[in-house]
Write a protein that binds this DNA or RNA. Structure first.
Lengths: 122, 122
DNA sequence: TTAACATATGAATAGATGTGCATATGTTAA
DNA sequence: TTAACATATGCACATCTATTCATATGTTAA
């Protein structure tokens, strides 16, 4: 649990403190931060990221993903459940199979941005 | 540990399987996925995200961040360490204080994209 | 040099998360 | 209706992670 830090002394003396209120005003609200981090959590797992990237190109069924990524069916389904719950993917049934596809246009851009970060570092 | 799934039967029958090789070709390499998810991990924590967003506007010292975000000094320092290690922030000492600022131009865009996602959902 | 301050860091702990097993659900073909 | 198949899901477990406490490091002023 987070607790308010009460052994701060720098406050009065810090030359930047007058700017702080500004920042505070512009600060994104607490709840929004939680939602934001929740989205990033979805991208923060290698398996989910690989699934998402496969779906960037085309609609795929669960067992395609299993084969393509050499993953256990249970693992894939569990991860797809998370992506479904947060509306990042949609699905449709076709007989016994269920086809998944991305349900958000921002996904690709978010990943592109992060990739730019990686590539620039080197 | 991941294991190769050997009880897949759908393979031959799946009408989409001919497309899979294409996807496989375009697939980002395994190591890149790990790096990518590592970056997203940094954004996937509410505390770190709040710190990052404070730094979007200006350079701040550790105790500014503590006060602004009502966080324990140790917590802030630990998180800054992670951000430092992955070159997301840089720092400079000024007397007893250490000022942190962002060290990557992509950060803001990544967050903007994710925010667009949130806002569109509603 | 010493005290006060600002920040960093190691260790311990609690909570979150990914995976696999076993099994349930739902669909199709016989 | 039943068997085979495709996918979903509850549970258990191992791993990872964020936070806090206690303390170390480094800086400045006296």
């Amino acid at each position: 649990m987070e607790e308010i830090n009460d052994n701060l002394i720098c406050g009065e003396k810090c030359p930047h403190l007058n700017k702080i209120n500004e920042v505070k005003m512009n600060e994104i609200k607490r709840k929004e931060f939680q939602e934001l981090s929740d989205i990033f959590k979805l991208f923060a797992d290698e398996t989910r990221l690989r699934i998402i990237c496969c779906l960037l190109n085309e609609e795929l069924c669960v067992c395609d993903l299993c084969e393509l990524l050499e993953l256990n069916q249970s693992t894939v389904s569990h991860q797809l459940q998370l992506l479904r719950n947060s509306k990042l993917v949609k699905y449709r049934r076709e007989g016994k199979q269920i086809f998944y596809s991305l349900d958000d246009e921002h996904i690709e851009k978010i990943i592109q941005m992060a990739l730019s970060h990686i590539k620039e570092e080197k």
